[in-house]
Design a protein around this nucleic acid. Structure first.
Lengths: 362, 362
DNA sequence: GTGAAAGCGCTAACAC
DNA sequence: GTGTTAGCGCTTTCAC
């Protein structure tokens, strides 16, 4: 027999049977009354509710889960928790869950290994949640089928998928807009602070933003230079290190596009540490519009992050309420916010008498 | 009968009975084998495990929960999710949960009402989790007893409690250290950017930090001036507005202590917008050592936030593993990090010939 | 070392 | 509108 857990603390919790006995009705009626189902007489319902309250009866969710197969919980799966972007998304998701009476279970998948574990292992997702919001986590079609077979709903933020809805921004456009802004200001030597290379969650965002960056460059007839591209791991220190290395180059960039504001902050730090004035000798543009970006005066491509989490969660709720899962794609708007970290490139520091005529619009 | 949920997608999941049948043993043996209990013959165990794997059997957590009364999940309860501090704590907690095979359910309690709801309602915590980590959420002794009666474990971060362990920093010392630093630099007119007033979660942190601030002032014989104290809601914009108001005063402060780095960032922004040089005419000190503080060159009182979440969660796990719940208090170290936003006050802007001799050490 | 069987506390047919 | 009852899929005594 199962229950030895009440050894410590307090007397036995009231169960549905206790309420039924006290109210002089059957457990079925209690169950119906508690859940507000229609076919209960008003007087009965009131009596049941009163007694339930008196006994401080709370339905056991585990029993309900077992009986219904629904957990009334969703998982929010993120690569890492301690980054501004992901915590905003989680905040948005949690808020919607709270509204809907769902639990939000957060799961970090910082490596491919843990992502696999999430999908495979005993200790996994199975039956613990009704659905998942994947936030910038790569999912191959096999994973999707597995999830569908397990009768789980799914929505992803960021990446596309083939069987389920997704929501995100146009990341190619992000890269294009950022780099175009720099090109328009007159920059021709534009560095790129990208995502991580060392632990490939093979997630799409860095790839797409880079594509947009290259597209803009190409449109302006500017050759991309791999020597001024580095990984910044989407962190402040990663961005700092990447920028520091570029500034050490014989021919450092006059501007950089950092794929996130946090990396851009790092770039600003590196510039300051190297004594390089911003935007005087270095322009910096980021992505996100982090809370702090306003303070830093950072030029950035804004996206509405918390809203992304909320909308994705609502899409998931729709599936849980029976809407069919189809591979729709919602796109949320992005917007260039020009502040004080971008400007025209400095006049080239060449000895008097020399002129460099490669600068200027195409 | 309960299960109609398998209507869509895939064939029936394997249950423990399927495995038992396939392996030619009883369900009890399968259960023992799966959980690594000692009293199973090695050969039996291997056979069971192989078959379970083959059938891709996953124990249903809801059934296990119902049978054992343990959910293998904890809740992390935070006032808001979209702040650096709380997301760090959640990250630390989630990491430990993942290690231990627990789920981390995040719950935002942004108001007293939602905190009450969490403790009271039908849709509440009961039996969904085995324990809770309360992060800077006020809990009165009654709440604690209720939780204990429900056989829930509890650890709190920040506030003390009377029946359960807690972990935190010495918040009075935080205020004292920050303000003492400013006093030592020669400041005598020191503003305070405090927490929120409008939605009192009556949580202790702002109160204690303020107490430390006042204590330092008093020790130096400096009178506190309520006109240079304002609420910043622990947000960047809140800090900005609070600072902007102070800078508009006839006699603005020469330094401010902001109770969080995010509010300090806001203060720096307000200073820049008002054309007030930092630290030339305004010194700013914060609390936390936010990722971005390094970039901003912000002087701050550092605490190790993610570690706080991890340690609290380990303490909770200890309780879940049978350690008695006692009202111990762990304190983690804090440290003043002096950077570039603090310096000696400017020479008073008085007409030549006047001298102000009130400045200097006591 | 293994099995039989009684729960855990609900929900959902189905009957009345 | 209400009651009866058979599960949901496990865990855990107790016997052997």
């Amino acid at each position: 027999m199962g229950n030895t857990a009440h050894a410590s603390g307090g007397r036995r919790r009231a169960t549905i049977e206790d309420v039924a006995a006290s109210a002089g009705v059957s457990v079925a009626t209690v169950s119906r009354a508690m859940r507000g189902l229609p076919n209960v007489a008003l007087s009965t319902r009131e009596r049941v509710l009163a007694i339930a309250n008196e006994l401080s009866y709370r339905p056991d969710p585990a029993a309900a889960r077992l009986a219904t197969g629904r957990a009334r919980a969703i998982a929010v799966v993120v690569p890492l928790l301690n980054s501004w972007y992901f915590s905003q998304v989680v905040a948005g998701a949690e808020a919607v869950c709270a509204e809907e009476g769902y639990d939000a279970v957060v799961m970090g998948v910082s490596s491919n290994a843990s992502r696999r574990a999430l999908l495979d292992t005993t200790t996994s997702i199975h039956r613990k949640v009704d659905g998942l919001v994947f936030v910038d986590v790569a999912l191959d079609p096999d994973d999707e089928s597995t999830l569908a077979d397990r009768n789980l709903a799914l929505v992803s933020i960021g990446g596309f998928n083939t069987h389920f809805p997704s929501i995100g921004i146009d990341d190619v456009a992000v890269g294009d807009i950022a780099t175009s802004h720099l090109l328009e200001l007159g920059h021709r030597r534009i560095g790129l602070i990208a995502g991580q290379h060392h632990d490939p969650l093979d997630f799409q965002v860095p790839v797409l933003r880079r594509r947009g960056h290259l597209r803009a460059l190409e449109r302006w007839g500017v050759a991309a230079d791999p020597s001024i591209e580095a990984a910044g791991n989407f962190s402040v220190v990663g961005g700092r290190d990447a920028m520091a290395a570029m500034l050490d180059l014989a021919e450092p960039p006059t501007a950089v596009f950092a794929m996130s504001d946090e990396m851009a902050f790092g770039a600003l730090l590196a510039a300051r540490q190297a004594g390089v004035p911003v935007p005087g000798e270095l322009s910096v543009v980021g992505v996100d519009d982090h809370d702090v970006s306003l303070v830093m005066g950072l030029t950035t491509v804004r996206q509405t992050v918390a809203d992304l989490g909320a909308r994705a969660t609502r899409m998931l709720m729709a599936q849980l309420n029976g809407a069919p899962a189809v591979a729709t794609r919602e796109e949320t708007p992005i917007e260039l916010i020009v502040r004080e970290t971008t400007g025209a490139p400095a006049a080239p520091r060449v000895p008097p008498g020399h002129r460099d005529e490669t600068r200027g619009k195409p």
